[in-house]
């Protein structure tokens, strides 16, 4: 696989958080979600596209996101995902957990 820039592999379990956060900015289809995450992090984070879709399906099953048919930029029929109320609650919980976690890690790693 062509890999022009060094990219960090995604930390286990953070994909859900990233997807939820992305959808918090508005409904998007799967490809747009992947692109947005990579663009927003200046390609520093690389989404494993093969695992993105199962993650989306799982989140839909859990009721965090909803799917509806929409149109893509080039006019294809495409599934567009949006955040549900339950998804918003989940996002809040996971964000809080994440801050807690990074702060704790930073305390150790940040020591001289």
């Amino acid at each position: 696989m062509p890999n022009p820039a060094p990219r960090s592999p995604l930390l286990q379990g953070t994909l859900d958080l990233l997807v939820l956060k992305t959808l918090a900015r508005g409904p998007r289809h799967g490809y747009a979600i992947a692109r947005w995450i990579e663009d927003a992090t200046d390609d520093a984070l690389r989404i494993e596209e093969g695992s993105l879709y199962p993650a989306l399906y799982r989140m839909e099953r859990r009721g965090w996101i909803d799917a509806a048919w929409g149109k893509s930029e080039i006019g294809q029929r495409i599934k567009v995902y949006s955040l549900t109320t339950a998804g918003r609650a989940q996002l809040r919980a996971e964000s809080a957990q994440w801050s807690h976690f990074t702060a704790a890690v930073a305390k150790i790693v940040g020591q001289p």
Partner: peptide, 20 residues
């Protein structure tokens, strides 16, 4: 809203991704 089979739904979605 999705008057299609589950197989169709998944195939369409993945094909759209690769196309984009």
């Amino acid at each position: 809203f999705f008057p299609v089979s589950i197989e169709r739904e998944i195939a369409d979605e993945l094909r759209a991704h690769i196309e984009l």
